[in-house]
Design a protein around this nucleic acid. Sequence first.
DNA 1: CTGAAAGCGCTTACAG
DNA 2: CTGAAAGCGCTTACAG
Lengths: 347, 347
Amino acid sequence: VAATIVDVARQANVSVATVSRALRGLPNVAPQTRARVLAAANELHYVADPHASRLAAGRTFTVGLVVPKLGQWYYARIFEAIDSVLVPAGYDVLPFALTGAGARERFLDRLPFRKRVDGLIVVDVPMADSELERLAATSVPIVTVGLRTERFSSLTVANREGARTATEHLISLGHERIGLIGGEDFEPFAFTIPGDRRGGFEDALRARALEPVAAWMVSTQVTMAGGAEAMQRLLSADGRPTGVVAMSDEMAIGAMQVARDLGLAIPADLSIVGFDDHEIAEYIGLTTIRQDVGTQGHEAATWLLEALVGEPELHHRVLPTRLVVRRTTGPPPTPGPNGPGRAGHTN
Amino acid sequence: VAATIVDVARQANVSVATVSRALRGLPNVAPQTRARVLAAANELHYVADPHASRLAAGRTFTVGLVVPKLGQWYYARIFEAIDSVLVPAGYDVLPFALTGAGARERFLDRLPFRKRVDGLIVVDVPMADSELERLAATSVPIVTVGLRTERFSSLTVANREGARTATEHLISLGHERIGLIGGEDFEPFAFTIPGDRRGGFEDALRARALEPVAAWMVSTQVTMAGGAEAMQRLLSADGRPTGVVAMSDEMAIGAMQVARDLGLAIPADLSIVGFDDHEIAEYIGLTTIRQDVGTQGHEAATWLLEALVGEPELHHRVLPTRLVVRRTTGPPPTPGPNGPGRAGHTN
DNA sequence: CTGAAAGCGCTTACAG
DNA sequence: CTGAAAGCGCTTACAG
């Protein structure tokens, strides 16, 4: 029932080739001819079949977005930012959510984006060298976010510096007993966010001759529930830190809840600083390290667009972070007779 | 460079028709032939070109998801739920984000999903009758979420009952001065969530012979910033409520921040109940009305899948909500000499 | 069970 | 500036 290019051609009394050229704004179409075609197309409510166009033109005009999870704050925000540059540029953006056991492996094994997208933006997907090679071998232009490799253009944030700044903030307030809660390291894989942040944390401590305490550095999932679990483990360790650096705002929120449940006041008994500057941080007064998600998505999409037309150049950009001090950090408690040195909660 | 069906056919010594049948698991292929085809396809790393398949088969195997915004919690979660049923069923899900001025109108005008999707899930998009008609005229199967009309199958939650329950909860704690902060009504359009929730709020008050106070019912955007703005306006009104119902958890969070900034303790001076049960609610102790986003997405996707194969039946489901009492609600303050009746903050 | 052939609806040299 | 025709890579009756 829907009109095809043949219907439009007949109605406008031209060939389908001319319709195709006229509708796409190509040069070498007489103004009056173009007007006639436009009128016909309008009258027939014509839209080109994208699949036919794509097959004929050899381009899909869609970009794949590979993320670990669709529902999480960071991925939703970056999706939004990417969509807002790619859609106006005429591209569809198709999500590939690598959620659930084996999803990452299956994706890397089957490469389901082949023949389906013109380019790919890959966010926070840990990959081994051989896997990066497999991706590169498909020769679809790729930009990675949160992941820096030799093979693809990348956008990352200054994770090490950010975590160092967070830690220094606590130190400058007088804290000497500082914990870290964060994500798991994906060992053989090129995904260095947790490692980089841990590195920055340790840098800051060592610069003040403080030794990182293994029992105060706990790795879990980067979610509120993970933050809660991490804080539980941290507070049941021997002794207890007076300040905690969390690798995400969501972790910080989960962690604070556990601390409060155990009767600790924030920041009086325990200071905490997050990472992200999730919009909620402002409303709950969370001190945090801000990263600009919008810029990450915007830049990644823009670079991919460039790679899609011209020669793909390899560039890397590391975006700065910034400390935002709010109300979850303050001086450490003055140790009383039951000071934190010995009064660690045990469960 | 990538292998086509012709390459596979040559390698397996069969026709392309047989390759097509064998690879798609169609009947009437000899087991050995199928094995030979599979082997050839494997060896050549063959994947079918989806655009060619779609053009030839006349089906796109993609479902469009229309949302007001990609980055917001509710839409991200429902996207995730929908993706998790559609992708395993062999469908791509393509987002249409109606963000920004005129995006809704442009979408409804151009109907950019035509020839591009087999079905559509439309979430929280206000539409006039004529617009619904336009959508229906495309004859693509549609399921709506958060929006109930005569034309399409729909999933909604019991908004009126939920808001009534929230309000009754405050009343049962002793509150008599209760405010409401929520979304804007989209007047000529079929989008009744704000209106329904407001209705439930008023129902509860009237059932106890309490009159809704216009100055305590403020409409803004359904975001944290909107909640903050609403609370500001509400607290600068004459008098002041002791309890507030918010139409989303995010609004509640923004609102609480403003209240605390003005020196109000929650719930001692002001009780607040949200709507959603955002995962953060648990961690900040927010009393709220839980809605099950996962089920909404899951059901919507399942219904659409059914409509895509068999006869599209029209069904409507209204999912229940549930009060989850946490720590932001309590009895109203006992009015002292400066009781809330007269001591309303003015700015 | 298998193949030859038409057809899906476009785009793009090529010729004029 | 315009058109005829080949071609993109599949699927699907139809015949055998």
